[in-house]
Amino acid sequence: MAKIKGTVVIDTEECKGCGLCIGACPQHVLELSNDVNNKGYHFSFMKNPDKFMKDPDECIGCSNCATVCPDACISVYRLKI
């Protein structure tokens, strides 16, 4: 069966750290950073983006996070393997 792997790219400078994407993610792959961007917001980012295959809680590319993002700073990619 073809599996789908997804990933998200977040424009961390545009992100205002509202945290809505974190609640919308069914796989819990996003979290707020301890660092801040140039505007002073704790931006959202993907936990361990390269550990897809080992981590069962991986991104499926559903684009729920991008749908609820008020600042349209999330791009979603999907790959069938």
Partner: peptide
């Protein structure tokens, strides 16, 4: 994934 996959949301 970004290079080989398709962009589903932009």
């Amino acid at each position: 994934i970004i290079r080989q996959g398709e962009q589903v949301y932009k």
